[in-house]
Design a protein around this nucleic acid. Structure first.
Length: 380
DNA sequence: AAAACGTGGAG
DNA sequence: TCTCCAAGTTT
């Protein structure tokens, strides 16, 4: 005797392939009608250019529409076509992306543009397998691009869709534990004649009505079919994963000046956290070490030079996804030795004016602002 | 397969 | 202040 899991019960209570036809049709029709009336007018919905749509899909990964819009407009100004992007320097690409976060997205966009230019003369592929093979494009993004650009009937499963579907079937486990089920459901529901509008509608529903907090069920076209709604448990779905507490790192950071009033910055390795971005050098404070000792040691280890640690400039609290940092930033003086890129990609002496043209992470932008204020106060 | 990977906004 | 999490992908 086979014991049925909660998953099976949940799914069969709605059915996927066994979902009655009338229910699917009804869901499709009501959603498409709702989209006609209530769908958002977004910049990337006014084009069928797969490149522009691709850019929007990448920017929208883990990022809200409101945040993306100005970046999207600027990006297309800077890189109007695949080959413009392919030919650009990575530094310039990262500069245009600066502030959007998850910088691997920009590096992958750049790399993929070069592949497309090399392999298909700059023409974005319309074949799913080829699209999926590009760096930075997974199943959801591939489905999003190809349904939006070419009206191909490919399902999507982003955060919005996971939430909408989890509520629709009152999914008894966190979405991450039921991805196969959710993909099947997204595929089953997809309206085969209007995949473009249907996918966009599903995302709009999640973003504007079936929101994480306080969903507006009285505006929803699906309440009649929604299990969570009928249980009166909309806000308890989707179920949450338990999250581990994140570490807090205490960092010493050096603004190293030379006699020419230039500042030493370094470029991070191309992979990993903030890969390819520039920063002020520094590192983690060890147990029993003062900030000045930490900074002196880190600079010796990373750049091979001797410095004197001077006045405090600013202290910055910053939260990343999986840890927090306190940046303790100090003015430093170059004493001797020629800086070597021991633990970074590249190093450079720059003036405060030049520094603006380099891509920096958010926390470092605050250091630059503090430096500008400091220099202005020195003059007066 | 769990962990890495940014930032901004909402409550 | 703090938690959650947003049009996810990669390793």
């Amino acid at each position: 005797m086979v014991r049925r899991s909660n998953l099976d019960l949940t799914f069969s209570s709605v059915g996927s392939s066994s979902l009655p036809n009338f229910a699917v049709k009804s869901l499709q029709t009501t959603l498409l009608n709702w989209y006609d009336q209530q769908g958002r007018d977004l910049p990337w919905r006014n084009t069928r250019d797969p490149y522009a749509i691709w850019v929007s899909e990448i920017m929208l990964q883990q990022t809200q529409v409101k945040t993306v819009i100005p970046y999207y407009e600027r990006w297309l100004q800077a890189f109007p076509t695949v080959s413009d992007l392919a030919q650009a320097e990575l530094d310039r690409v990262l500069k245009v992306w600066q502030g959007l976060g998850y910088y691997a997205r920009a590096r992958n966009l750049h790399k993929a543009a070069q592949e497309i230019t090399r392999n298909s003369n700059g023409i974005f592929p319309s074949n799913v397998e080829q699209v999926l093979a590009l760096p930075g494009i997974g199943r959801t993004t591939a489905g999003g691009i190809l349904s939006a650009a070419f009206n191909q009937p490919l399902p999507i499963l982003d955060g919005n869709v996971k939430r909408v579907l989890a509520r629709l079937i009152a999914l008894e486990v966190p979405p991450a534990k039921a991805l196969n089920l959710l993909w099947q459901l997204s595929e089953t529901l997809l309206e085969p004649e209007h995949p473009r509008d249907f996918n966009q509608a599903l995302m709009d529903l999640g973003a504007t009505v079936c929101t994480p907090k306080n969903p507006e069920c009285d505006r929803c076209p699906w309440t009649f079919q929604c299990q969570a709604y009928h249980l009166g448990q909309q806000s308890n779905f989707p179920m949450r994963e338990t999250s581990a507490p994140i570490p807090h790192k205490f960092i010493g950071v050096a603004v190293i000046w030379n006699e020419a009033q230039q500042i030493l910055i370094d470029k991070r390795h191309p992979e990993g956290l903030l890969g390819g971005l520039w920063e002020f050098p520094g590192g983690k404070v060890e147990a029993g070490e003062t900030l000045a000792e930490c900074i002196k040691r880190e600079i010796q280890e990373e750049l091979g030079i001797e410095i004197a640690v001077g006045d405090h400039l600013i202290t910055i609290e910053h939260a990343y996804t999986h840890f927090r940092v306190t940046l303790n930033v100090y003015h430093c003086q170059h004493i001797n030795g020629i800086p070597q890129p021991i633990e970074c990609e590249e190093i450079r002496w720059v003036t405060l004016e030049e520094i603006e043209s380099y891509p920096f992470p958010k926390a470092n932008i605050q250091i630059i602002e503090a430096l500008k204020t400091f220099v202005a106060s020195q003059v007066s």
